[in-house]
């Protein structure tokens, strides 16, 4: 499992890219999707997704669609036109970032002299 700091910075990218693959999704569905697709490596804290969803909605990248399920309301999120564009940009940016990180860390070998520290 990855550290929460790493996930926090990429949460928007994850949500946007998931929604660009699936036309509309609700909160719980997104959480489960992330868990399943990453074999549990990325596990969102329960509810951690909603602040990001609301923020993306406020920024005009997502719209919601309310569907009643019995006595409760389910909110489906989908990308706006602008959100679709942002999804592409964010995914591309992250790809480049991870390539850069790969290059940077390829030459990394643990310093044997410091190994007694750990």
């Amino acid at each position: 499992m990855y550290s929460p700091e790493l996930i926090k910075g990429t949460l928007q990218t994850i949500v946007l890219s998931l929604l660009s693959e699936n036309e509309r999704m609700y909160g719980y569905e997104i959480t489960q999707h992330v868990k399943d697709r990453t074999q549990g490596e990325i596990q969102l804290t329960e509810g951690a997704l909603y602040p990001t969803l609301h923020k993306l909605e406020a920024d005009g990248l997502l719209t919601t669609e309310k569907v009643s399920i019995g006595k409760r309301v389910r909110k489906y999120y989908r990308l706006t036109e602008n959100g679709n564009k942002q999804a592409n940009d964010k995914v591309n940016e992250f790809r480049r970032f991870s390539e850069t990180m790969n290059d940077l860390l390829n030459s990394f070998t643990p310093n044997p002299e410091l190994s007694w520290l750990s």
């Binding site: 909603y50 609301h54 399920i69 909110k75």
Partner: peptide, 12 residues
């Protein structure tokens, strides 16, 4: 809005 989201989440 947040209440609705969380209610659906927990119920599901």
């Amino acid at each position: 809005e947040l209440h609705d989201d969380l209610l659906d989440h927990v119920c599901t």
